[in-house]
């Protein structure tokens, strides 16, 4: 039996169903923005000569994507630590220095992204950022694998131990993490495609950008589908027993459907097909985010039954959060509306 700590004696703040839903929502939100940098940076580098306007837009949007992606990443981590601290902390402590290193690496990547956005050593800076961010993504993926694999902790501990403590210089990397990164990158290519579609069709003031973007979108989706299919064909058999068939079908079929819609957009470009494509791509991300969280819950469910953990009933602070969320959405709506109107005006003036 691996040395799994007991659930926190303070109990769950509210029933686990709510926490799980918030975790899925947070992961979905994180995926939207993280996808933009995961595939957006390599695409921007690759297209810097052949499609300079697309490349420029992607470089410029990267700092925003990173700001919101990092911010949204807080949510699933917060609820992961609420639901499964006894799995998450040992998995990260066993590889402590590598986990700690993510912070300075992220800082370097973020700085490089800004340098690229401001046009300074653009290719070199974005290559560095893309490399660092892909590595961070892989390490995240591997840490999540280890979180759900307590049976592998003792062997890793034997390598990592120093006088009973952990020196933290061991890193856990596994095939499953690599496959999940492959799945994510495949979806990310689609997200970048959908994002370009929206830019091309909603802001129609730049016809040359539209000309560059339109034929690119189905290519990105097709490449994404290829990678998604390749990684998925090896990953799915590993988790079939932990994933309900309906969710398997939904998550698996969503990407080919979005890809077909991308080709439809190519044949009939316009605002309606662009919005439809963006909605379908959101479906890809949401179904896969849910599937991933369901698999993780099933894996950890083999070790702990969270339904047995007492619930404290933190309804007061939960209400405070919901109220803040509502007010925040209202303020956010006003800010975005104002930004939209002023940008539109500026674009109209040329």
């Amino acid at each position: 039996m691996p040395p799994i700590p007991k659930p926190d004696p303070l109990g769950m703040p509210i029933p686990i169903g709510y926490l799980f839903a918030l975790k899925v929502f947070g992961f979905f939100l994180h995926m939207v923005f993280m996808n933009l940098w995961l595939a957006g940076l390599p695409v921007a580098i690759a297209l810097s000569r052949s499609r300079p306007r697309v490349s420029e837009r992607l470089f410029v949007v990267m700092p925003f994507a990173m700001a919101f992606g990092i911010n949204a990443g807080i949510v699933p981590l917060l609820f992961l630590q609420t639901l499964y601290p006894q799995f998450f902390y040992p998995a990260t402590i066993l590889q402590a220095w590598f986990w700690f290193l993510i912070i300075p690496l992220l800082l370097m990547a973020y700085t490089a992204v800004y340098a690229a956005a401001f046009g300074r050593w653009r290719i070199a800076a974005s290559l560095i950022a893309a490399g660092l961010l892909t590595w961070i993504g892989f390490q995240f993926s591997a840490a999540m694998s280890l979180t759900a694999r307590p049976e592998r902790w003792p062997a890793l501990f034997q390598i990592a131990t120093s006088a009973g403590g952990v020196h933290g210089l061991t890193i856990y990397l596994d095939r499953e993490a690599l496959l999940r990164l492959g799945l994510m990158t495949g979806m990310a290519l689609g997200t970048v495609g959908a994002f370009l579609t929206l830019l091309a069709e909603i802001d129609r003031k730049d016809p040359r950008f539209r000309e560059e973007a339109r034929p690119l979108v189905p290519i990105l989706f097709t490449l994404g589908l290829g990678l998604f299919g390749l990684a998925g064909s090896q990953y799915v058999p590993m988790v079939t027993d932990r994933l309900p068939v309906a969710l398997q079908l939904l998550a698996g079929a969503s990407m080919p459907i979005a890809c077909a819609a991308a080709w439809l957009y190519r044949a009939r470009p316009g605002r309606a097909t662009a919005i439809a494509l963006a909605i379908l791509q959101s479906g890809v991300l949401l179904s896969n985010a849910t599937a991933r969280q369901v698999v993780q819950a099933a894996e950890l469910g083999a070790w702990v039954d969270l339904r047995q953990v007492p619930v404290r009933g933190e309804w007061g602070s939960f209400g405070m959060f919901l109220a803040a969320l509502l007010i925040g959405l209202g303020v956010l709506g006003w800010i975005l509306r104002t930004v939209w109107i002023r940008l539109w005006e500026a674009a109209s003036r040329g």
Partner: peptide, 12 residues
């Protein structure tokens, strides 16, 4: 985290 989870969520 177990005491302040929704404080953190509000901060987010």
């Amino acid at each position: 985290i177990h005491v302040f989870v929704f404080g953190w969520a509000t901060e987010w």
